[in-house]
Structures are given as C-alpha cells and as structure tokens.
Computed example of a mutant assay.
Amino acid sequence: MEGTNNDVVLLDFWPSSFGMRLRIALALKGIQYEGREENLFDKSTLLLEMNSVHKKIPVLIHNGKPIYPSKVGVRSVYTLPSLDPILWDYIGYVVVDKRNFSFTYWFLHYLWMLQIYSTGRRVWSGKGEDQEEAKKEFIEILKTLEGELGDKTYFGGDDNLGFVDVALVPFTSWFYSYEICANFSIEAVCPKLVAWARRCMQIESVANSLPHPHKIYDYVLELKHKFGLDTN
C-alpha cells in the first residue's frame, strides 16, 4: 500500500549513489519507510545481520527480510505485493522498457560492468597518470550513455523516468567532485547528459533524494584527508 507501509527499513549512507536510487524509487512510489543511517567504519549489528556476506549498504528490509543489491531493491519496490499490487506502473519498466527488456538489461549490464562507481572513484582519488587515464575512461562511459539517451527526454522514454534513469541519476550528484578533482567539465563533453540530469532534478522525488553536489565534495575532501590522498 502506497504511503502507509511501516514495515520497510532502508539501511543507507547519505553519499551512497546506490542508496540514492532506492530513496528515489521509494519517494516516487510514495512509500513511507524508516531510514537508518549507517556508519561504514562501525557497521551496525542489523547491517551485519541483514547483509552478512557483503556487509554493504544499501539494504532494503521488508517485513524483516533483506533485499539487495540496490538495483534489485529498486525493482522490488515495484513488485512486492504488500507495497503495491500494480507491477512496474511508474518506473521500473515503463512503456519503452516493456517493449524492449533486452535494452534495459544490456544497459544496466553496461552501467555495472564498466564500473561507473569504481572509475569515478579513481577520478576523484587518483593522481597523475592514473587520474588522467581514469578521466578518459570516465568520459568515454559518459559519452556512450549520452549516445543511448539520444534526443529522448529520459532513458525510459519521453514521459516518465525509467529504471535506467533511477539507476544512473544518483551518480550525477558526484559530477561536481569529479570535475573539481580532475579539472574538467562534464557539460563540455556531454551536454545532453547534463541537460538530462537537470531535467531529472526538476522532479521533486529526485531532488529531495540527492544531496547537494557541494556536500558530496566536502565529503570527498574528508575522504582524501582520511586516507592521505590530499598530499602531493
């Protein structure tokens, strides 16, 4: 039932792009949940119990049972009968995706196999040649994504956010940090992708689920200092 489910808990950490996509999905569906912020350097007993193998966030818990990783969690938001009897009715597989399952799964495979997260991490944390190489790889990933977006309003089509949009848009909150740390402009190389990100941010559920890019950058500076990455 939308908006009234008290048996949903999200174990999360605010800068996590993977957690952000679950926040967006829950917000779009109007599902109330209890968000529990995790300390990744001192993980809670609940997190270790709910994700005993990987011990990572986010973990979506429904009726005491864990659902992870986050892309599975996003899908589950739309398939758990007690949350909503209508499957994939808003995001997940919108009309375009329903007609082309292979495209969506290929695209998600691309998102994860090319490791946007790990490549982006090398962009903000790297130095010298390694950072330059990571930046080139990252730009190529973004260009491929922009090519798939084409002239559509969203990756899911022209009407609503799709599964790919929800999976990808959280990474845009890190764009500012990538740009500052590696001295480049994403908009200069991928203007359509940046325009898409701005359209997504006009949607209240997205805007309220993503932290401000400057807050992410402050967190990046903390990490760089913590791990000695801010020294020459």
Rank of each mutant, 00 (worst) to 15 (best):
D158G: 12
H225Y: 14
D151K: 14
D218W: 00
L22M: 10
P15Y: 12
I61A: 05
Q32C: 07
K135R: 15
E37L: 13
F163Y: 07
H212W: 03
I57L: 05
G120F: 02
Y217H: 10
V72H: 08
L40V: 07
T45A: 09
I186Q: 04
K143Y: 13
Y68A: 08
L11A: 04
L48I: 06
V94D: 07
T144W: 15
D97H: 00
K135M: 13
L142S: 06
G19K: 02
A182P: 06
I180N: 06
E38L: 07
M113W: 05
K192V: 00
K71P: 08
V166S: 03
L28F: 06
L149G: 00
T104W: 00
T231F: 09
G64E: 06
G92H: 01
Q115D: 14
I86T: 12
F101M: 06
K215T: 12
W88T: 00
I139Q: 15
L221T: 13
S177Y: 00
A27E: 03
L22K: 01
I216Q: 11
I57T: 06
V169P: 03
P69L: 04
N63I: 02
V206I: 12
S17A: 10
S82F: 06
S209L: 10
L168W: 04
Y93I: 02
T79K: 02
G92V: 02
S82M: 03
D130I: 09
E179F: 03
A197I: 08
D158W: 13
V59G: 03
I31Q: 10
Y217P: 01
E37Q: 15
S185M: 14
L223M: 14
E2D: 14
I91V: 06
I186V: 15
F175A: 11
L223Y: 12
L221A: 06
F155G: 01
E133M: 09
Y217Q: 01
L26D: 01
F103T: 01
A188K: 15
E2W: 13
A27F: 05
V53M: 11
E49H: 12
A207R: 13
F171P: 04
N208S: 12
E34I: 08
E146V: 13
L22E: 01
W196I: 03
I180R: 13
A27R: 09
S52H: 14
L11Y: 06
V194S: 13
I91R: 00
V206D: 07
Q202W: 08
I186Y: 02
Y90M: 08
V9L: 15
K98C: 01
H214D: 11
E179V: 12
E204D: 15
I61K: 05
L168M: 00
M1P: 06
L47T: 04
S185P: 10
G30N: 10
S209Q: 05
W196N: 09
L229K: 10
V169M: 07
T153P: 02
R36V: 14
V77L: 12
I141H: 12
E132G: 14
R198C: 11
F103N: 00
M201T: 07
